[in-house]
Amino acid sequence: MDEDSPVFVISMAAELAGMHPQTLRQYDRLGLVRPGRTAGKSRRYSVRDVSRLREVAQLSAEGVSLEGIRRILDLEDAVAGLRGRVAELETALADELLNRPGRRVFAAGSEGDVVSMRAGTRIRRSNQVVIWRPLDH
């Protein structure tokens, strides 16, 4: 069974989470948990939803307000999304590095222009000494 499949009716989800069904309805209204809906608009909870309900109960027992819980859950969701995006980008970068062994690297030239270079090489910098003297007026 998929962790995100909405399979539990509200009474079963409430029992699994150790809560009253009315509490689940309130948490749904507040956006703390977002169960799936059937065609008839009945709530269906997933394993992930039940786990989230348990987390809400734990935070509530520790004295965190419902608004605080909502903010914590929103931040956890954002972090999970960002971790997923980082993993995607790391995979794309690894694929690109493997698929382009003779890739080029870019550097900034002395005038600020973009200079294309082979991997493993360095740009040659000027080693001239420049002396600045103010104009006498």
Rank of each mutant, 00 (worst) to 15 (best):
D2F: 09
E3N: 14
E3I: 14
E3Y: 12
E3C: 08
D4N: 15
S5D: 12
P6T: 05
F8T: 00
F8D: 00
V9W: 07
V9A: 13
I10R: 04
A14P: 04
A14N: 05
A14T: 03
E15T: 11
L16V: 05
L16D: 03
A17M: 04
G18S: 08
G18V: 03
P21L: 02
P21Y: 04
P21D: 06
Q22P: 01
Q22I: 07
Q22T: 09
R25K: 09
Q26I: 12
Y27P: 02
R29L: 08
V33L: 05
R34K: 14
P35Y: 02
G36K: 03
G36N: 03
G36I: 01
R37L: 08
R37D: 06
R37H: 08
T38G: 10
T38D: 06
G40V: 05
G40F: 04
K41Y: 09
K41W: 09
R43I: 05
R44A: 07
Y45N: 01
Y45Q: 04
S46L: 06
V50K: 01
V50Q: 00
S51D: 15
R52E: 05
L53M: 15
R54D: 04
R54N: 11
R54T: 06
L59Y: 06
L59S: 00
S60R: 14
E62I: 03
E62H: 12
L66Q: 07
E67I: 10
G68L: 03
I69C: 02
I69G: 00
R71W: 02
I72N: 00
I72K: 02
I72W: 00
E76D: 11
E76L: 06
A78E: 12
V79G: 00
A80D: 10
R83K: 10
G84W: 04
A87W: 06
E88C: 10
L89V: 13
T91E: 15
T91N: 13
L93R: 14
A94E: 13
A94C: 08
L97Q: 12
L97Y: 06
L98E: 14
N99F: 07
N99A: 15
R100H: 15
R100C: 09
P101Y: 04
P101I: 03
R103K: 11
R103Q: 12
R103H: 12
R104Y: 11
V105I: 13
F106A: 11
A108Q: 13
G109T: 07
S110F: 10
D113W: 09
V114T: 14
A119M: 11
T121G: 03
R122S: 13
I123G: 10
R124A: 12
R125G: 10
R125L: 13
S126N: 11
S126W: 04
Q128A: 08
Q128L: 07
V129M: 07
V130W: 01
I131Q: 11
I131M: 12
R133T: 12
P134E: 15
L135Q: 14
H137D: 15
